[in-house]
């Protein structure tokens, strides 16, 4: 019998791949493979045909220039992505894509970049960059460890929950203590690091929902990844 396939879609890898977010794809692929899934990796860049079958979506951060390049295309795909999210498709949106998944991003010069409104959140450009090692406390995932690097300040609406509360770092806006956003099976965050290697609980959440949504079940094998726990401990203890 053939191994079950999971179709993993990387959104805009050409323009939105900065700050190590590639690691998230590597981790999802490996952890799926270790549990017996065959991973089909799709890249989606502006103008490409959106694949028929998608089980899991990941997308990363980008330069402002990268965001400009993808914005029109993302708006065109907005309806499809919202539908998939409402249907329970797991997604991970980091940094720049997180901002564009919200209603809008108003830059510090007053320019309004329309988002796809998949998340009830909105962002305004801030005066400084919020940069550094970051630790969150999350009800769902426990301690989450990453590295933030953004100048946009995001405020969450009532339709979404925060991904976590910062115990070290600035988070969404440096004032309300929240970091990231959660909506159905969508996780949005400012954390790079990459996020998933040091946060296996988050990686496995995405994988589980991808498998369950497609096959009705998940081959839930516990994984013992070398250096994972130690890397978490070391990273959490580093200065900002």
């Amino acid at each position: 019998m053939d191994a079950p396939v999971i179709d993993l879609l990387q959104l805009y890898p050409r323009d939105m791949n900065i700050y190590g977010d590639w690691g998230n794809v590597l981790v999802l692929r490996k952890r799926l493979a270790l549990r017996g899934y065959d991973v089909r990796l799709h890249e989606y860049n502006p103008g490409d045909t959106f694949p028929e079958q998608v089980d899991l979506v990941v997308g990363g951060g980008g330069q402002d220039s990268g965001q400009n390049k993808i914005q029109a295309d993302l708006l065109a795909q907005g309806g499809r992505l919202r539908e998939l999210a409402d249907d329970g498709l797991p997604m991970l949106a980091v940094c720049g894509l997180y901002q564009l998944f919200g209603h809008r991003f108003t830059t510090h010069t007053g320019e309004v970049i329309t988002g796809i409104g998949l998340l009830d959140a909105e962002t305004v450009g801030g005066p400084t960059r919020l940069i550094g090692n970051t630790v969150l406390d999350s009800d769902e995932f426990g301690t989450v460890i990453g590295y933030e690097n953004h100048s946009g300040l995001t405020t969450l609406g009532v339709e979404v929950q925060p991904f976590g509360r910062v115990t070290k770092g600035d988070g969404n806006n440096g004032t309300d203590g929240t970091e990231g956003a959660r909506y159905r099976n969508v996780i949005a965050t400012y954390l790079h690091g990459s996020l998933l290697p040091k946060n296996p609980a988050v990686a496995d959440y995405l994988i589980r929902h991808a498998a369950e949504r497609r096959y009705g079940s998940f081959n839930d094998v516990a994984l013992d990844i070398p250096h994972e726990a130690e890397a978490r401990t070391d990273a959490a203890a580093r200065p900002r």
Binding site: G23, A231, D234
Partner: peptide, 13 residues
């Protein structure tokens, strides 16, 4: 200092 991160990186490769 970040040997463990590097070790984890190599595992995934």
């Amino acid at each position: 200092v970040r040997a463990q991160d590097m070790g984890l990186r190599l595992f995934y490769e």
